[in-house]
Design a protein around this nucleic acid. Structure first.
Lengths: 287, 287
DNA sequence: GCCTTTATGAAACATAAATTCCGTCATTTC
DNA sequence: GAAATGACGGAATTTATGTTTCATAAAGGC
């Protein structure tokens, strides 16, 4: 039987394997394509896992993994796995190189490279700051407030809007009731009128502060709705209306700021709230 | 059975394991010391090899490896091996201090702290990857394409939406003509109908891919509109329609991903495009 | 519409692995 | 110098892993 009459050679390194997989991707059967996608997206899993564990993660049968390997000329799954392991071995991270890679990498040779480097570096700096500027106790309190809320109102405009947008997406997936404020014009007041002390709000506003956000936060605070806020200055007008507030200064590159740290913060808060709710009791979590 | 009455805790990461081994090295029996030396000299072997193969290499019996592991409080050899594997997985940072600051800071004491730490760490990892996964040449090409465009169409749904949202905000401030696709339902086709070869599009889609985004990218490509895309898998259907595409895998914490690296990337691209336009000529930049 | 081919899932099999157990040896202590 | 304690090597045991096989399902061709 000429099972593996390889007109083409068996890939010996990860890069060529990746290339071949991408080339043949279209012609692959459904399950094999599924494995291919999983393999390229989670190479580390392939390297360390067992056939059984990988099969579970990728949602296929172990035999499919073997077939996949054989499809590309390997004797069995194990020999394919070697490629993935070699990749980790050789790519000895050499962490120093990694840092060097940032300051001295190919990017800087090209025109736009320094801009790219600048933003990555700025994001790193932002994240360095975040651990020190966010107090654990405050974070805990914020989580408690939001976890106890019936509905979480998300207040954000302009530059902050993507943050609440992402939180909304995540809350939706996590089955946490939320309400975005400030999407369509005009109806905001009606939405806010429904908020009460049993709810809570999360407001984000960076300088220059959108006056609507500030006003809406005030309005909510007056209605005894506990407000948690994220801002970039202790002088932010948001702080007055907030039970808990966080000051998070994003590092900038050439005056422009990305939202890297804010996104990490937002996601942490979102998941922490969901987690807290889950723990607090399955009794009334799904109403 | 008080075999392992650990007055001290079992090491959970490679660094602390290394420290403990070095501390106790002097008091170790001969063979165990032999294993200790081998382990620290050939960590990769420990990570990938089997107990039998390692034993042969280190010139000891397999049972000695088990004894060694138990000596340090592990249940068996396998659990010790996990430490060595984790080291390779998590590209143990050359940023030692940074991570140590993370795992050892006040946050870990509190309930939600580990979630917070997890997301900050994940964001760091994402940014570590970004420099290596984004090719400078590709970035340059993407900048050129978008800088040359009359109008930049931003295509993104769901999880990717905040990215294009932020780019829209920044483009607005930078006076770069753009058009968001997919905000209000229904009018998308009309908007896309205006796009032509002189324009360009930037599409973002992460798994699971929103079919509208994919279709719209295809549509644009068919209309000879150059498409630049950002995705998280080489398998993304977006890739086919794109002139340039970037694969950017956000590291996850407990299965949830933030958008930290994507945000840095988006901002870098946005500013680079604006900068390029500014340089290309003040003549027609302000029309 | 039927038949052939190919893909897929589930379980069985054989193998290789990790771990445990026990006998032997060396070193120390009384 | 004898007994005891601990280390070590090697084999036995048990676990679990990769692979193969077979039956079924889906797809494609005539």
């Amino acid at each position: 039987m000429a099972e593996t009459e390889n007109s083409i050679a068996i890939p010996q390194d990860f890069e060529s394997l990746k290339t071949i997989i991408l080339e043949r991707k279209a012609q692959l059967p459904k399950r094999l394509r599924q494995v291919a996608a999983y393999a390229l997206d989670n190479p580390d899993e392939i390297a360390f896992g067992t056939a059984a564990s990988i099969a579970t993660s990728a949602d296929v049968q172990p035999s499919t993994l073997v077939r996949f390997a054989q499809h590309f000329g390997f004797e069995g799954f194990s020999s394919l796995q070697q490629i993935f392991r070699a990749r980790l071995r050789e790519r000895t991270p050499g962490y120093d190189e990694r840092l060097k890679a940032l300051s001295g990498n190919d990017h800087s040779k090209l025109e736009s490279g320094s801009i790219f480097n600048g933003f990555v570096a700025a994001a790193h700096r932002s994240l360095d700051n975040i651990a020190s500027s966010v107090e654990p106790e405050a974070f805990e309190r914020a989580v408690n407030i939001l976890a106890a809320a019936e509905t979480i109102y998300l207040v954000a405009k302009r530059r902050s809007y993507p943050i609440s947008g992402y939180m909304a997406y995540a809350f939706g997936k996590l089955k946490v009731k939320y309400q975005m404020v400030g999407t369509a014009a005009g109806v905001d007041d009606d939405i806010l009128a429904m908020a009460g002390p049993k709810d809570a709000a999360f407001a984000v506003s960076f300088s220059p502060y959108a006056s609507e956000s500030v006003n809406q936060a005030k309005l909510l605070a007056n209605r005894k709705v506990p407000v948690v806020s994220l801002t970039d200055s202790a002088f932010s007008p948001l702080a007055e209306s907030s039970k808990v507030w966080f000051e998070l200064v994003e590092a900038d590159h050439a005056g422009f700021r990305s939202l890297s740290a804010s996104m990490a913060f937002a996601m942490a808060l979102t998941v922490a709230v969901a987690e807290k709710r889950r723990r607090n009791g399955e009794d009334h979590s799904m109403e």
